[in-house]
Design a protein around this nucleic acid. Structure first.
Lengths: 106, 106
DNA sequence: TGAACATATGATAATATATTCATATAAAAA
DNA sequence: TTTTTATATGAATATATTATCATATGTTCA
C-alpha cells in the first residue's frame, strides 16, 4: 500500500500531521466552541453553568464539549450529578491569544 | 437596534471578536489551506508552483488563496503573467507552531 | 491581432458540520 | 423505589464548506 523509501515516509508523516493540525484548528473554528473555551478561562464549570453563560441549550453544549474533549482541549470530572469541565492545558489560551493578536493588529 | 449601556457594548464587541476569531481559525482548519501555508514557509511562490507542490488543481488552489488573502494571511503581487503569493506576516508561523506543539505533546 | 499561458471566478454537486429534538443514562433526593 | 436533576447521545434537518467544471480575465509573445 505504501512506498518505503525515506522521502516518502517523511511526506507520509507530515501528511498525517497536517490532517491532525487541521482537526485541531477546527476546534477553534466555531464560535460556540470558542465561547465555551473562553468561558472556561474563568475556571472549571459544570455543563449547566456553561449553558447559562453562553446562552445555548444543553444538548448543543454537550455535543461541543465532547468534540473539545476528544481534541484534548478540555478535561472533565464527575461531581455528584454534575460533570465539571476545565481547560486541559495552556495551549488553548496561547493559541487563542495568538489569534487575537492577529485580528487586533490593523 | 442596540442597547447602549456599557455592559452591553462590551459584550457586543466581544461577540464580534469571537466571530472574527472563529473566522481566522477556519483558515487553519482545512488541510489544503495548511498545505498552502506550509508551502509558502519556503518563500514566495506563484500559483502554478503551489499547485505542483501540493498536488491540487489550479482552481481549488486559487479559491483557497482568495480565502487566505481575505483573512490577510497571505499577500500577492503580479509578476508578468504570474501572481506571486507570500505569507502576510509572522502570525501564520506562530499560530501553526502553537498548534504543532499541542498535537506533538503526548 | 490572435494564440498561448497564468490566474480568477461563478455555479454546481458532494461532503462536512452544527443545532435541535427525543430519549437514554446516571446520580441524588423525596 | 419513584421522581427529579444533570448530562450524554443518536437521528434528522439545516447550513456551510470544498472541489470540480466551465469559462472569463489579463498578460505575453509570435
Amino acid at each position: 500500500m505504501h512506498d518505503h523509501n525515506e522521502d516518502y515516509m517523511l511526506r507520509d508523516i507530515e501528511e498525517e500531521q497536517l490532517l491532525d493540525l487541521a482537526d485541531l484548528f477546527k476546534m477553534f473554528a466555531d464560535s460556540t466552541r470558542i465561547r465555551i473555551l473562553y468561558d472556561l478561562f474563568e475556571g472549571e464549570k459544570n455543563v449547566t453553568e456553561i449553558c447559562e453563560d453562553i446562552e445555548m441549550n444543553q444538548s448543543a453544549v454537550s455535543h461541543q464539549l465532547r468534540a473539545l474533549k476528544t481534541a484534548k482541549l478540555v478535561k472533565s470530572k464527575r461531581d455528584g450529578k454534575a460533570i465539571i469541565y476545565s481547560l486541559a492545558d495552556d495551549h488553548v489560551k496561547t493559541i487563542i491569544a495568538m489569534g487575537k493578536e492577529h485580528i487586533e493588529e490593523e
